[in-house]
Amino acid sequence: MRVGRIASALAAVLLVPAGAGAQSVEAAAGGFVIQRRVEYRSGFYQQSGTCASIAGAVRAGPLRAVWRACSGTLAASGAAPDADVRIQAEVTGLDVAASRLLVLGFRREVRRFESDAGVTVWHLRGGTVRLEPDFGLRGLRGLVDVSVLGTGRVRGGAAFATVLQTAMGASFDPPGGRFGVRLSYRFERYDLPESAAGPRRLEQFTGLAVEATVRLRGR
């Protein structure tokens, strides 16, 4: 009974019908202040840096196609095996607004790390769930984004056991304006199990992401 009630309450909150939604085109630019922590061969390393990003989204009704590219440099703090890594990432995805609050989507990401030691490329694919609850002030919304990229793999290497990307924060789009701002805390976890390609490697990315958005077309 209790489970049923909880499920009903959740459904009532999450499945508020999405609006008809017109077409719109949005662009965004921002940065991700990254702290990367790596556990590899029983050692612990930490890198930090900034990744600049640009993004675009086209929305038509409940569908939203997204593209995002990120480029930056991570500098080692301490004796890191991959000192000064240049990182590049490209994300493409398609979202469906299940309700005014809940968005479901698919993500595909290619992340490239380049250092003196060589180039490593990650291919990640999976699903995403995003909640954008209204805080009560016009234009102010919360942001909860959880992506589980279950079919990730290192090119020429092992498959990831766990790929989890989360973002928690808020966005503010002043009413009547075209510009907005998004602030979130990102937490990412990547687990590469021990395999023939190499020993176990665990990584975590955390940091502050700030984005300015502009609506180029539509509402």
């Binding site: 609850p133 942001l143 989890l164 928690m168 808020a170 990584e203």
Partner: peptide, 23 residues
């Protein structure tokens, strides 16, 4: 619905719950 409360706490507690203890 005070959505802001869990969302505000999430960045503080998420790494502990979702991350690796060793990291």
């Amino acid at each position: 619905t005070p959505w802001a409360i869990p969302i505000a706490f999430a960045p503080i507690v998420l790494p502990s719950y979702l991350g690796r203890r060793s990291l």
